[in-house]
Computed example of a mutant assay.
Amino acid sequence: MTKHKIYTMSVTSVYPHYVTKAEKKGRTKTEVDEIICWLTGYSQEELEAQLEKQTDFETFFAEAPRLNPSRTLIKGVVCGVRVEDIEEQTMQEIRYLDKLIDELAKGKAMEKILRK
């Protein structure tokens, strides 16, 4: 089975789109970074290093220091697919991130986005 194209894309190539989506709705790059760090366990410095290295999505999630156990509380639809029903682990992690960025852009409070 061939890998999905997103797995080999660098996080760096998509990251500006996350930031732009958030900023268009009055949110900030700092909030985008906070979400990514919350989800993956990367520190701000580690996140910046991954972006600088042009790490692909598959490696980014495989090397994540500590995937947040609360991420399983993320529910909903992204690209017409329920994130909680995705069986492929890497794709589910990518879609979790997409869903969190969507929630940020829709104005949801950070406390709720981070499942506190």
Rank of each mutant, 00 (worst) to 15 (best):
C79I: 11
E88T: 09
A109D: 14
L39N: 00
P69S: 06
E88R: 08
A64V: 05
R66F: 09
M1Y: 15
A62I: 14
S43R: 12
T8L: 15
V32G: 03
G107Q: 11
T2L: 13
I6W: 14
E34F: 12
K53S: 06
A49D: 10
T55Y: 02
G41R: 02
T55P: 01
G26Q: 08
G26N: 07
K24A: 11
K5V: 14
T8K: 15
F57A: 02
F61W: 01
T59K: 08
T40W: 01
A62M: 12
Q50L: 05
I101D: 00
G80K: 10
S13A: 13
K75I: 07
R95K: 08
T59I: 07
I101T: 02
K112Q: 15
P65H: 07
T30C: 12
Q92I: 06
K29V: 10
V78N: 03
L104I: 04
E31P: 08
I94T: 02
A109I: 13
L73E: 11
T28P: 07
E63W: 11
K116Y: 15
K75N: 10
T55M: 03
T40A: 02
I74V: 06
W38S: 04
D85A: 12
E103G: 06
V78W: 03
Y42K: 05
K75T: 09
V11L: 07
M110T: 12
I35Y: 01
V19P: 02
E63V: 12
P16K: 10
E45D: 14
Q54R: 09
S13C: 11
M9N: 14
K112F: 12
D85E: 11
T8I: 14
T12I: 06
V14S: 09
D33V: 12
E23A: 13
R95S: 03
E84N: 10
T28G: 10
R82F: 11
R115A: 11
R71Y: 02
R66S: 09
N68Q: 04
D56W: 03
V81E: 11
L39Q: 01
L104P: 01
E34M: 15
R27W: 06
R71V: 03
Y7R: 13
Y42E: 03
A64L: 04
A105D: 04
G107M: 09
R71S: 03
I113Q: 01
Q89C: 11
I86Q: 04
L104E: 00
T28Y: 15
L114I: 09
N68E: 03
G107I: 10
V83L: 03
E58K: 13
E45R: 13
I86L: 06
L97V: 01
D56R: 04
Q50N: 07
I36Y: 02
E34N: 12
K116N: 13
V83W: 00
T55W: 02
V81I: 11
T20E: 15
P69W: 05
R95C: 04
F60Q: 00
L39E: 01
G76I: 02
M1R: 15
V19Y: 07
A109N: 13
C37K: 11
V19G: 05
A62P: 09
G107H: 09
A109H: 15
R82L: 08
E103D: 10
I36D: 00
T8A: 15
V11G: 01
L47Q: 07
A109R: 14
E111L: 14
R66Y: 08
A22E: 07
M9T: 15
V81D: 05
E103N: 09
M110I: 13
Y7S: 12
T59V: 08
H17E: 14
T20Q: 14
P65A: 08
E84I: 07
T28S: 15
T40V: 02
